[in-house]
Design a protein around this nucleic acid. Structure first.
Lengths: 247, 247
DNA sequence: CGTGTAGTTGAAAAGTTTCAACACGAGTGG
DNA sequence: CCACTCGTGTTGAAACTTTTCAACTACACG
């Protein structure tokens, strides 16, 4: 690997922001000198918990993370999945107390950036502030897409939609191609993300396999019939705002 | 009315931001000189449509608005409700194309603020940028709360949760009190917001009335048993971040 | 007084959940 | 190397929540 881990984190962030807008040398420099601390975490570990008041934001460098909320009787709702380049708790910069938890899904490398340095950064570089603000707005757009799914789509369409979304997100950062991507989620995870039961997820997945729409084995997803799947799920990737970088 | 309509709009915005942080005279001045154009719209009118590229943001001055997304076969998902002081399409400032529509619910007064002036404003006043950014983050927190509801709560809990949320939001801006508030939504609106059918909403409402939890007649909601309703819905208002202004 | 929107009702159907059992593979300790 | 456990995936049958469809009521408005 050409970079030391900490440098890798800032490089990743710079690349992410440059996929949206061209940065000045000064801005790139400011991002690069962000004091990040990189950690390697095991799978299924909490990073920040509901009720915490974090002092750092967390940049996913490698692996998957998710946000989730626990309810009474052990019910769990997963709110989002995050991959390399995402800053899932960027919101803690302006909303002090977490209203949900953040955890790893797989073992993962994450970089912690102090709020303090981010506040200084955005105060000095308003355009970077806008870019990060925009990032939280895209986050919200993904929430809306999930809401539409949970409110108005069948289990079948919801599962299809999530698979399309994750594939496109992974492809955009070079982690997927050929309609094939990692999908390190158990059927329980999928159920908790989609508002279904694991049993039902299982049955719908079988149906999709029977129709030769996709294969899903050992945490690897192959979408064999992209057009049919994305049509069935009414998947329109525009909400992800990948315009500039998508092929 | 003590203010000309346009002035009323900026005053409302200033009051909203001052409920979170103390503003400097300069900031207040900058907000006050924002060139807003106030319009009175009828009920059920689109303000911005899915796919549009707005040039203005819309501040709700009076009345209710909602964001929604239309799917094939006439299915509709309402994504949020907005009341006085909200800027439902603030996101258009950084994400050019709308991925959903914005419409009035009741007849409403809305003030349009050009993107241009907002961009200038946030460039000159980074703290105002942060406050507006924060606003979009609270928006996202409400989305998450709705996701939890649609994913993991029963129809009964979902309806109760929405009523608690709207009551608290209205109370925070002085439009409700005594566990009594306007609720200008039809059962069809409720259904589309909660991911249910109107018929089912109707039956659950009857159940709630039978239990003397609430009254809902002629667009007026009275929550007769707040504690029971909010407990049944597991309503915890912290996600609304009303700390400083809530009683 | 008619027309239309909103709310209500009943019965049957559908989608999804629940519960309980079993299969399979990976990892662990004896 | 086996037995054991644990997490994950799979299956079946019954139950439940919610939907669907269709009809009907109530009320506001022009």
């Amino acid at each position: 690997m050409p970079f030391a881990p900490d440098q890798h984190a800032t490089t990743l962030l710079i690349r992410k922001l440059e996929s949206i807008a061209t940065l000045t040398d000064e801005e790139r420099q400011a991002l690069d000198s962000l004091p990040v601390r990189t950690h390697v975490l095991g799978a299924r570990q909490d990073i920040v918990r509901d009720g915490d008041r974090p002092t750092h934001c967390c940049l996913v460098v490698e692996g998957w993370a998710c946000r989730y909320k626990l309810l009474s009787q052990g019910k769990r709702q997963i709110l989002s999945f995050h991959i390399a380049g995402d800053i899932p708790d960027l919101l803690s910069l302006h909303v002090p107390t977490m209203d949900h938890s953040l955890a790893t899904v797989t073992s993962a490398t994450v970089a912690f950036i102090p709020h303090e340095s981010l506040h200084t950064l955005v105060a000095r570089h308003p355009r970077l502030a806008s870019l990060l603000w925009r990032d939280t707005l895209i986050d919200a757009a993904i929430f809306r897409a999930w809401m539409v799914g949970m409110g108005r789509r069948s289990a079948y369409e919801r599962i299809g939609h999530l698979f399309c979304e994750m594939y496109v997100k992974l492809e955009a950062v070079g982690l997927a191609g050929d309609h094939c991507c990692p999908l390190p989620l158990t059927q329980v995870d999928l159920a908790d993300a989609l508002g279904l039961t694991p049993v039902h997820v299982n049955r719908v997945l079988q149906e999709m396999r029977r129709q030769a729409l996709l294969e899903l084995r050992s945490r690897k997803l192959v979408i064999q019939a992209w057009d049919e799947l994305s049509a069935a799920a009414e998947f329109d990737p525009r909400y992800l705002q990948l315009g500039k970088r998508a092929a």
